[in-house]
Design a protein around this nucleic acid. Structure first.
Lengths: 226, 226
DNA sequence: GCAAAAGTGTTGAGGGTACACCCATGA
DNA sequence: TCATGGGTGTACCCTCAACACTTTTGC
């Protein structure tokens, strides 16, 4: 049996598309690179995979050290293999997307970055590498996923109102959704539970607060949009 | 900027779940290994990624040299990263699943294998590495995919009858489907077109032959099962 | 003529869409 | 009391699920 070390292997990177919902809009976290290649340009956060590290470990490392986050919802997206995607040589990129509540974390630029910032998904700057493609793939995946899986709660606070949830869905799907039908559908799915309290101190009638039903494991939720 | 060669990288393998439909059942192609590890055991076909090779190239290489196939429907499945998944050391496995018509190819055991064989998905032998997990992931993906994307045609001949298509769906989904509702639904979707001819020489009433409508690019096909 | 399988049509129930009205709050 | 936004109810339509009869072939 041949030894592995006799083969030369491509480098393996982990790149993350971190979505956040803030100020009534969907955003992505981007990093301004301090070093070449793509110095001073915006890219997705990422890192090279260490030899003993699982993907999860690598993602946690990026989220922890570069962004000051932990325990976030994450899912594998796609593995990008274009031999020309990195000017330094052959780099395979295994990508994940994450959903976080920006209020819970203070983003910090790590050693490798000039800056870290949230960008409205509709107003992204030019991105280095093939990161625009990666972002588009993630955005599309999120749009599909949210229609049959209750993934939006990860972006909101522990408790939230129906109008807040409604607006989040409109934001992600980039469509109008009838709020009454939306409300009925979500309540019928049993994915959300009333808390009994309301969001007070707003301009108008206080909205009921709900929370995600964590006990519910399986469901045939399917949101149909007009 | 650091040189890449200073880093040691995990090995990168490509593994394939090749589905075929034959004798009214769904099968997977397995390979009996000639060498350690898992010598004389069944595994999914695969190979190490070459330095300059894209995933597509690597898949074509495996399908071509080990299985004598070309130009098949293929889709990326998932990338498996368990550091202990290969006894030889750290190997990341990027997996694809393929759909082929077994009648079109004569499978041949390449240099690396004792044997290559189709196995009924319901009667798989023990598999080496984490290939059982990979298979299950692929099977599940195929089940979901076929409900909203006309992927079954890849497994059939150029022309096929409605009962054949119906049985294929029942096979993949492992459920009974009402044949009348199924037929109406498929015809309404415009994914299939009448050829005008019929399957003659059978025991009973000849069935109409259809073919896949290749012109149709986009559709909101969604099959609902009882 | 009979068995077996293929083609086709109908009906009723349920879910979704598209609506309008009432309610609670701050100013 | 008025404007604004949140909560709730209803009717129609359309789709889907359930089901039965007719047709064509081989023996």
């Amino acid at each position: 049996m041949k030894s592995f070390s006799s083969y030369k292997n491509p480098a393996l990177a982990i790149d993350l598309v971190v979505f956040g919902y803030h100020d009534d809009r969907l955003s992505v976290l981007l990093l301004n690179r301090k070093d070449e290649p793509f110095k001073d340009q915006w890219t997705l956060p990422g890192a090279f995979l260490q030899m003993e590290e699982s993907f999860q470990d690598a993602c946690d490392r990026v989220l922890g050290t570069k962004l000051g986050m932990n325990k976030v919802y994450m899912e594998q997206l796609f593995t990008f293999d274009d031999p020309a995607r990195d000017p330094r040589g052959r780099v395979i990129s295994v990508t994940y997307y994450a959903l976080i509540n920006p209020k819970k974390f203070e983003v910090v630029a790590g050693k490798m970055a000039n800056d870290v910032q949230w960008f409205d998904v509709r107003k992204l700057p030019a991105l280095g590498f093939d990161h625009k493609t990666i972002f588009k793939t993630a955005h599309q995946r999120l749009k599909s996923k949210i229609l049959y899986y209750p993934v939006g709660f990860e972006l909101l606070d522990e408790t939230f109102t129906m109008p807040e949830l409604h607006h989040l869905y409109e934001c992600i799907l980039e469509t109008k959704i009838d709020r009454r039908n939306f409300s009925r559908k979500l309540l019928a799915s049993e994915y959300i539970v009333e808390t009994g309290s309301r969001r007070e101190g707003q301009q108008n009638r206080p909205a009921d607060l709900y929370k995600f039903n964590k006990k519910l494991k399986q469901n045939n939720f399917q949101l149909n949009i007009n």
